[in-house]
Design a protein around this nucleic acid. Structure first.
Lengths: 187, 187
DNA sequence: GGATTCTTTTACCAAATGGTAAAAAATGGA
DNA sequence: TCCATTTTTTACCATTTGGTAAAAGAATCC
């Protein structure tokens, strides 16, 4: 919980009373490996903060599962567009390891919008971050080779290399598992 | 101006007084072909609504210009992350034809945030749209072939095919001009 | 019109990637 | 430990894409 508050404070400095209110809205949960927290078509009702473990967003347009993002320790995750706009989610969220999270419901987020001055600022900044991350990712596909995208991935998620099946990483950077295996061999 | 108001009303129904206030903040301008409205490194101070013409976002990471987006008639454009977060823009904005725009300054947008209830909702929805567009784009790079990305482009921007140099479209979908010429020949 | 410039096509070959399949390696459970 | 399952590597070949270059075509300016 300490780490979570620290992250929130990095977005916007929280007053003592807001800290108390916000803290009260996050619920601690254990999520077993393999759990689908949000399924495609469902509307995301919770926002998650990862204390421990790894999750991914995934989508299956042509039958095969494609990874849309990874979230690791000390990161927030959810189906952002669905959570924000209350639309059915295009992607699912899957726990890739046993996870521990703090989660908050949309209902409580809306409540905090009214009762604190900081919450809307925090959510706005998180949305901006997510948007910029998406722009960067698009830009990488436009201008980087598969090998360069892989290098960039290793740079950003070094710890995932040990934990996550190669195939999930391959679809994340837009290539097949075999190609990634080849790329990795070259070094 | 009628069309602009119509678009704004599609985001959020405007009251009569807000309509008047907002209308007063948009300035009509003619932009000659080739104009750089925002340069890389500069902070975006205006938001543009295209009455006529075409613009693009571009970036030159390795010397060569890459198109990051196109905007056509009846669309908004700016360097969104820069305009919203007041950070130096990573991309430039270029008029690809003689354009007519209505533009609004950040100063006026902030003023409208305070004086109307609708403006913040409009901007929030526009940001959501931009975010979802970026996610879709990333997703296309992950899962579609160059040919499929080209088909998708033609579907979304049919009128651009006649007006815009092929090379600009090629970098937008992440391939070289030669490859796109080849793809187009196959039909 | 004619020259200049920009744009598009084409050709050639090298490099990268995909698809199918099978073997090898690693993992997890009984 | 051994078996079953999952994951990774490897091989082979077809397809796609990139890079360089040159030719053809279109637009622009004087």
């Amino acid at each position: 919980m300490q780490k979570l508050l620290q992250t929130l404070n990095n977005y916007t400095k929280l007053s003592e009373s807001s800290t108390e209110l916000i803290t009260g809205c996050f619920v601690h949960k254990k999520i077993p490996k393999g759990t689908i927290l949000i399924s495609e078509g469902q509307t995301a009702r919770y926002f998650y903060w990862l204390v421990k473990g790894t999750m991914r967003g995934r989508i299956a347009p042509k039958g095969e599962l494609i990874t849309t993002w990874f979230a690791t320790k000390n990161m927030f995750c959810s189906s952002m567009p669905s959570f924000i706009s209350r639309k059915p989610s295009r992607e699912s969220i899957e726990a890739l390891e046993d996870c521990e999270v703090y989660c908050i419901s949309r209902h409580d987020v809306l409540m905090l919008f009214k009762q604190t001055t900081e919450m809307s600022s925090i959510v706005r900044k998180m949305a901006e971050e997510a948007y910029i991350h998406s722009l960067n990712r698009t830009y990488q596909f436009q201008s980087l080779s598969a090998k360069e995208r892989y290098d960039s991935f290793v740079m950003h998620y070094p710890e995932l290399m040990q934990k996550i099946p190669l195939g999930m990483i391959a679809t994340y950077i837009g290539i097949t598992q075999q190609s990634l295996s080849r790329i990795r061999k070259q070094l």
